[in-house]
């Protein structure tokens, strides 16, 4: 489904930052992969490279067999099949929840307004806030905004969902409602790549956990392996700090 081979990404600002160094990984259909690691280890960069919000410098990334770094690939077509959920929600501030959910369906998927609204309504029910259809993002709580954002991504019927710390910006009492939605998705068989610090979520639903540090994948394995017997010193150190 998703395969990265020797992906490198370097940022040049005041100094050189090697955000990704030779990263390779594979995510199969139906897999839920959780990526953990300290701040600045390149988790977001990896996720953003997967849908080309960030262009990898080197290596190959295949989505459903399509090499997205090939200049001939239409990246918009690839992105249609990949949903992304951001730490800061990024809901369209000038649109209601309904508008947020229907816009891309109509513009990109060319669905009729009626069709798009039906799909939107069903998804708002699914994430548990059908009563907020006419609310603007600024009048919603963080947890509600993030659930609208998840619904917005789902409305495109993606094959993969990417989550970049979806609960980090939330007040503690709202984290649960967002994680519940994500757990439901995982149970339904959605292919998911999740960057998170929620170890409970990782333990409960992840098929695989990837630990990153300094732009590299340090360790990769099942949650049992990770939380019971991590092999690398750095993984142990990180887990001891976070748990």
């Amino acid at each position: 489904m998703v395969r990265a081979e020797n992906v490198c990404k370097t940022f040049y600002t005041t100094h050189k930052v090697e955000a990704l160094v030779d990263v390779s990984c594979q995510i199969d259909k139906g897999d839920v992969v959780v990526i953990i690691g300290p701040s600045g280890s390149g988790k977001s960069t990896l996720l953003r490279c997967l849908n080309m919000l960030e262009k990898a410098d080197k290596g190959h990334i295949y989505i459903d067999g399509v090499d997205i770094l090939d200049p001939k690939t239409n990246i918009n077509k690839v992105r249609e099949e990949m949903g992304m959920v951001f730490q800061s929600f990024n809901l369209f501030r000038h649109k209601t929840a309904m508008g947020n959910l229907t816009l891309a369906q109509m513009v990109v998927r060319k669905r009729s307004k009626k069709e798009a609204e039906e799909r939107a309504m069903a998804l708002l029910e699914k994430v548990g806030i059908p009563d907020k259809v006419d609310s603007y993002p600024d009048s919603l709580s963080g947890g509600q905004q993030q659930r609208v954002a998840i619904a917005r991504a789902l409305a495109m019927d993606p094959k993969v969902m990417l989550f970049d710390e979806p609960t980090s910006a939330l007040d503690p009492e709202m984290i649960g409602e967002v994680l519940d939605v994500m757990k439901t998705l995982a149970r339904e068989g959605m292919t998911m790549v999740v960057v998170t610090h929620e170890m409970g979520f990782a333990r409960e639903v992840a098929d695989r956990v990837i630990f990153m540090d300094e732009g590299k994948i340090v360790e990769e394995g099942s949650p049992e392996h990770f939380f019971k017997a991590p092999t690398h010193e750095r993984t142990k150190l990180f887990l001891s700090q976070i748990l």
């Binding site: 849908n51 919000l53 918009n76 077509k77 992105r79 249609e80 990949m82 949903g83 992304m84 951001f86 800061s88 990024n90 809901l91 369209f92 501030r93 816009l103 891309a104 513009v107 990109v108 954002a149 917005r152 991504a153 495109m156």
Partner: peptide
Amino acid sequence: RGQMEAARSLGMTYPQSMRYI
């Protein structure tokens, strides 16, 4: 810039994102 990124992540082209978002 998250607004543009969200629009692009949904498969909208650059002109579409400009125009609608």
